[in-house]
Deep mutational scan, measured.
Amino acid sequence: MEVRTIKVFTTVDNINLHTQVVDMSMTYGQQFGPTYLDGADVTKIKPHNSHEGKTFYVLPNDDTLRVEAFEYYHTTDPSFLGRYMSALNHTKKWKYPQVNGLTSIKWADNNCYLATALLTLQQIELKFNPPALQDAYYRARAGEAANFCALILAYCNKTVGELGDVRETMSYLFQHANLDSCKRVLNVVCKTCGQQQTTLKGVEAVMYMGTLSYEQFKKGVQIPCTCGKQATKYLVQQESPFVMMSAPPAQYELKHGTFTCASEYTGNYQCGHYKHITSKETLYCIDGALLTKSSEYKGPITDVFYKENSYTTTIK
């Protein structure tokens, strides 16, 4: 009895394709271990004539594949690729409408935090270190965002349907971005203890939790000093293409032309909904596939993004 075979390709990165001759009487799992086709788990399936010449994702289970996976995804987590594939199996079914010149995501599976993050990423200057993220990001900007969303979920250790947080998501993504040249110098002034300067680099240099107003941050924000008295913390120097200011959701007025974009969060910790506000020729609110415009805006804002380049204080 002759062994019926077909020729397929296996890959971990969709760049390096490895030619395989597979036995049609055995499952993919018996031949390769966990195997995925377009995100779908085909591990328990036997090869079919229609699979001839198709590319299958496999887990990096030998040295060659491990090197290829690390170079593309910059992670050695053995569960990463499987999590990416199972997320992709959902995100490829989502709709990605162009809204006001940006790629958004039609609401499904509690994905409003991903839509808000995706919209924000198209408006701030950011370059990702893992080629996987950078490639998928370019495709997302062009309207094909399924891979990018699935990668975000995998890097953030999230599953489809789980509630997510924009600030946490951005923080994970910033860790995989090139923020080497970003720098922030802060000064804390206390009447009792004097003053202390701190220099922050990388992710810490672009994120701040405690106030939404970048102007206020430049002037000074009140913080408790270690001595128990009130101290003032203010920005001395900022070198970065953008800054992200966050605070627990509270009524906040966004003035046209003073910011790049913002995240609105309605609801409580267990259950809520994100919308995205962007400042173009007027203010726009993007909620999944829905767009509304207004000249002014007041609502429960939790993150505001500002364009920056270089700032030095005039406070002496």
Rank of each mutant, 00 (worst) to 15 (best):
M85S: 02
K95L: 10
I301G: 04
V21F: 09
D62C: 14
F70C: 12
I277K: 05
Q230M: 13
C190K: 05
I15H: 15
K218F: 03
L254V: 07
L126S: 02
F174M: 12
F56T: 00
P78L: 15
L151G: 00
T43R: 00
E71H: 10
V8C: 12
G228D: 02
I105E: 01
A231N: 02
Y84S: 01
A177K: 06
D23E: 10
V185K: 08
A231V: 05
K298S: 12
G101T: 03
R4G: 14
H273Q: 04
K255P: 08
C182N: 00
K95D: 11
S240H: 09
E264T: 13
T312W: 09
S279K: 03
T226V: 15
F56R: 01
T292W: 12
T260A: 04
T282E: 09
L235M: 01
T75R: 03
A40W: 13
T258M: 14
V8F: 02
Q20G: 06
T91Q: 02
K218S: 04
T192R: 14
L283A: 04
K201A: 15
K316D: 12
D303L: 04
F80V: 01
C227Q: 06
C112D: 03
K298G: 08
T64F: 08
P249R: 09
L126P: 11
V99Q: 04
N14R: 12
R139G: 08
T27R: 10
A140P: 01
T10A: 05
T103G: 02
L283V: 12
Q251R: 10
C227W: 03
K54I: 09
L114Q: 01
Q237G: 08
H176N: 09
V188T: 13
Y36S: 02
N187C: 15
A136Q: 08
M209I: 04
V21T: 14
V42Y: 14
K191M: 13
A262Q: 00
T266H: 08
A289Q: 07
A231I: 03
F9R: 14
M245L: 09
V67D: 15
D135T: 12
Q197D: 11
Y72R: 11
F242N: 06
E52N: 11
V221G: 04
T19E: 15
F242Q: 05
T169S: 03
K233G: 13
Q270H: 13
M245P: 04
W94Y: 06
Y208P: 11
M85G: 02
V99S: 05
R141S: 10
K201W: 15
A247G: 06
N89K: 13
D109T: 02
S86K: 14
Y36M: 03
E308C: 12
V99F: 15
G220N: 08
L290Q: 14
T313I: 10
C156Q: 11
S181M: 08
P60R: 08
A108G: 00
P130L: 01
S246E: 03
L88S: 01
C149D: 05
Q31W: 12
T232W: 13
G143P: 02
H18Q: 08
T314H: 14
V42M: 12
P224C: 12
G257T: 06
P249A: 15
D303E: 07
D135W: 00
E215F: 04
V185S: 05
V22C: 11
C182W: 03
E296N: 13
F242R: 05
T75H: 05
I15Q: 07
S50E: 13
S240R: 04
L254Q: 08
S279T: 07
D13R: 00
H256R: 12
R83L: 05
D13P: 01
Q175M: 05
T232M: 13
C225F: 03
Y57D: 00
Q238T: 07
T103Q: 02
N147T: 09
T91I: 04
P300K: 14
E308S: 11
F56E: 06
N187I: 10
T198A: 11
Y297Q: 08
D135K: 07
T292L: 09
D38K: 14
Q175F: 04
N111S: 01
T5A: 14
D62Q: 14
S86L: 12
T282M: 09
D303W: 01
Y311R: 08
K293M: 11
H273L: 02
E162L: 04
T27L: 13
E52R: 12
L186T: 12
Y284C: 11
F128N: 02
C156A: 07
A140I: 09
A289K: 00
F217R: 04
K201L: 10
V243G: 02
P131N: 01
Q237R: 12
Q122W: 02
C190G: 00
V243W: 02
P224H: 14
L121G: 03
Q222T: 14
T75I: 10
Y72T: 09
E68R: 10
T27C: 14
H256V: 09
N110S: 02
D109M: 03
K219Q: 10
G29H: 10
T64Y: 06
T192N: 06
Y297L: 06
K92V: 06
Y73G: 02
A250N: 12
A108H: 06
L283K: 02
V185R: 07
P34R: 05
V203K: 15
V221W: 07
W107K: 14
L102R: 00
E296L: 13
